[in-house]
């Protein structure tokens, strides 16, 4: 994605709804991209929940959605780790491990960025918390 488009996307996100949920920082809808590089990126929607004991989630809701395998957060440094199956844009099942970090945790515009590895590939991901509950 050209850099100026990223900047525009970021600005559009800044103008997204004001009301963030103020409870567990991971709860809610996250959207962004994962891929091996800038030319090979997959759109990703991740819906996360917290029941007081553990995190659960749904990847790409709709036809072909996937239950999130497992996810953990270490609030001492706001790092996250997850292990799950994903379906990429070609319909291929990929088992991945990912590690990332939350930024702007106190803000409604929080982000989650990090890296992932599968058996054959690796790359990065970038997600932003969307408005709404």
């Amino acid at each position: 994605m050209p850099r100026y488009l990223s900047a525009l996307l970021f600005l559009a996100m800044l103008a997204s709804p004001a009301i963030a949920q103020q409870g567990h920082p991971l709860v809610g809808t996250w959207q962004g991209y994962w891929g091996t590089d800038d030319n090979n990126r997959n759109f990703l929607t991740l819906i996360l929940n917290w029941d007081g004991q553990k995190l659960s989630g749904l990847i790409n809701p709709g036809p072909g959605s996937t239950e999130l395998g497992s996810m953990n957060m270490d609030s001492s440094n706001w790092s996250v780790s997850l292990e799950t199956d994903l379906t990429d844009d070609d319909g291929m099942q990929v088992h991945i491990n990912a590690q990332g970090k939350l930024d702007n945790v106190g803000s409604m515009n929080r982000t989650m960025t990090g890296t992932w590895q599968s058996a054959s590939d690796s790359g990065s991901f970038t997600l932003e918390r969307q408005g709404g509950p």
Binding site: A15, S16, P17, A18, I19, G131
Partner: peptide, 11 residues
């Protein structure tokens, strides 16, 4: 009103 107002800067 503030809950679903999608234009906080105008609000």
């Amino acid at each position: 009103c503030q809950e679903n107002n999608v234009s906080p800067d105008a609000m």
